[in-house]
Nucleic acid binder design. Sequence first.
DNA 1: CGCACAGTTGACAATAGTCAAACGATGTGG
DNA 2: CCACATCGTTTGACTATTGTCAACTGTGCG
Lengths: 242, 242
Amino acid sequence: MSTHAAIAAHTSRTVPGYLASVIAMPSAAGVLPSTPPRTSADPLATLGHSKVLDRGTTVFTEGDAAGAVFRVHSGVIRLHKMLPDGRRQIIGFLHTGDMMGLAFADQYLYTAEAVTATTVQRISRAELEAVMDAQPGFARKLLSATTSELMAAQDQMLLLGRKTASEKLASFLLRLSARTTAGRIVDLPMSRCDIADYLGLTTETVSRTVTKFKSARLIRILVDGKLELLDHDALTDLAGGF
Amino acid sequence: MSTHAAIAAHTSRTVPGYLASVIAMPSAAGVLPSTPPRTSADPLATLGHSKVLDRGTTVFTEGDAAGAVFRVHSGVIRLHKMLPDGRRQIIGFLHTGDMMGLAFADQYLYTAEAVTATTVQRISRAELEAVMDAQPGFARKLLSATTSELMAAQDQMLLLGRKTASEKLASFLLRLSARTTAGRIVDLPMSRCDIADYLGLTTETVSRTVTKFKSARLIRILVDGKLELLDHDALTDLAGGF
DNA sequence: CGCACAGTTGACAATAGTCAAACGATGTGG
DNA sequence: CCACATCGTTTGACTATTGTCAACTGTGCG
């Protein structure tokens, strides 16, 4: 179980807190050449300030006063919740462009930590509110992003409640591969323990299932935390149409 | 397992669909006497039309073209997703005031069915869009509601991924009781199978756990699908601080 | 009255968890 | 430069929680 366990961050949490909203709003860097000059630039671009975080750093902790939202500019962040005895459930992994901490309450509802070295942009609640007031379309963008995140959360409920270990791992790998443009190569920056706590399994079960997939020639482990999907179709069948 | 199983409604669903957003916007009936006349009345009140649904009726099915959102005026609705082999995961139960189907995509991502006799208000996407255009604050209300729903989904992930059968049932009963004002009496309109598919368990395990709670004097079964919480504190401990 | 169905209970099986040991990579200090 | 410590991962043996299959009970409805 979670190596983190130990003393659970069990602050008072009767009040609903901030929650994550993944906002797909790629930074200017990735603009397609064919795209005409955009009429509405990123309204958050000039707000707040950026921070560089080492691997393992905590961005905020469940129960903390929630004064700001964050946007990931590079790297991977994990969000998790904990039970009093230290059992951990990872709520999601955030990549470049994703936002976290968006909500209308006064405490964070989960902990955010850097899986890899990351840069995040901190935007205070006040600033965010100001943008929503100034730009009528912005709230709808946030709504759209939050809605997408909710969809993902519902898929995850199906996974956690009804899928077997193999199905969970297959789904996880396919989702990661769908996220990256690079065909069959998947980047796995997180530990087996992180994967386990995301899929509702133990490290041992994840490890055994990975070994099973290797033996069945479904995947191949590469160097540097990368992995190749050898049989996308078989994995898709396993994952249950997702 | 789900008695529903049989032939799974396995339509094409590569395109992301509509998703649920629970909108706490109590109807005029429940206005507090102390509340001053509200400046902004329910902007959806006059839209669409109401339908009365029998117990068991399907409102919409996963994969259907998503042309409208719905608001529950009375009764209880369940939302579920299915795997190709018929395994079912209930995503949530909706009560009076809750909305479903809100999203920015063209297919419903889950099925909605009436647990009890219900009345629902159907609002077309076009009408909803029009309200968002006309009332700048409305998108933010929807955002707030969607955000709350996402918080609930994240709690459910923790439950599904990390809690034991007893902890799941205790959490479930406490959530239901928190929803109703009537102290220790909880209304359980859904079947054991529904509860099982919501908690990621089987009917048999739910039944056994209920029996265990009865033996331990934690709960008492009443007539007509009602139940009394005899030891709220013990249940809270069991549920893991929630 | 009896059929149908939800719920309960029992016996047994299986998936995943627990505990433990060993392995490999990485980094530190002698 | 190598020994050693540490951490993440893998593998094994065993356990246990939950699922499966099946029978039975109780309740409501035709």
